[in-house]
Deep mutational scan, measured.
Amino acid sequence: MASQGTKRSYEQMETDGERQNATEIRASVGKMIDGIGRFYIQMCTELKLSDYEGRLIQNSLTIERMVLSAFDERRNKYLEEHPSAGKDPKKTGGPIYKRVDRKWMRELVLYDKEEIRRIWRQANNGDDATAGLTHMMIWHSNLNDTTYQRTRALVRTGMDPRMCSLMQGSTLPRRSGAAGAAVKGVGTMVMELIRMIKRGINDRNFWRGENGRKTRSAYERMCNILKGKFQTAAQRAMMDQVRESRNPGNAEIEDLIFLARSALILRGSVAHKSCLPACVYGPAVASGYDFEKEGYSLVGIDPFKLLQNSQVYSLIRPNENPAHKSQLVWMACNSAAFEDLRVLSFIRGTKVSPRGKLSTRGVQIASNENMDAMESSTLELRSRYWAIRTRSGGNTNQQRASAGQISVQPAFSVQRNLPFDKPTIMAAFTGNTEGRTSDMRAEIIRMMEGAKPEEMSFQGRGVFELSDERAANPIVPSFDMSNEGSYFFGDNAEEYDN
Rank of each mutant, 00 (worst) to 15 (best):
E380H: 10
Q235E: 05
S274Q: 10
G288N: 10
R436E: 06
A237T: 06
V190R: 04
G349T: 14
G200P: 15
G228K: 09
I57K: 06
A260E: 14
F71N: 02
Y97F: 14
N250E: 02
L256N: 10
D88M: 02
K48G: 00
I138T: 06
D88H: 12
T424G: 00
D34A: 00
R317T: 07
G282P: 12
E484N: 13
G54D: 07
D101F: 09
A366C: 07
K48F: 05
D128Q: 12
G94C: 10
K48T: 05
N59C: 09
N21D: 04
P83S: 03
Y281S: 09
T215K: 02
I257Y: 15
E11R: 04
C223R: 12
R65N: 15
I119L: 04
I475A: 04
Y148R: 14
S28R: 14
L344P: 14
N417Y: 05
K184A: 03
I138P: 09
A233D: 02
Q364N: 15
I194H: 01
Q398I: 01
G462L: 14
Y40C: 14
Q405F: 10
H135L: 14
A129Y: 05
L358E: 08
K7M: 11
M331A: 02
W120D: 11
S262F: 05
E244F: 08
L108Q: 08
F489V: 15
S413Q: 10
S274P: 14
M481N: 11
V183T: 06
L193Y: 13
G450K: 14
K113Y: 10
D51E: 01
G300D: 06
K351H: 04
N483E: 12
R416F: 12
E465P: 10
R55G: 03
T350V: 02
R199C: 13
I253Y: 10
Q168P: 04
M136T: 13
H82V: 00
M448R: 00
E443F: 10
F338D: 13
N224G: 07
N473G: 01
R106P: 01
N321G: 13
M196A: 00
M448S: 12
A493N: 10
L172M: 15
L381A: 05
S262D: 10
K229E: 13
L56Q: 04
A451F: 01
L379K: 08
P173E: 05
S310H: 09
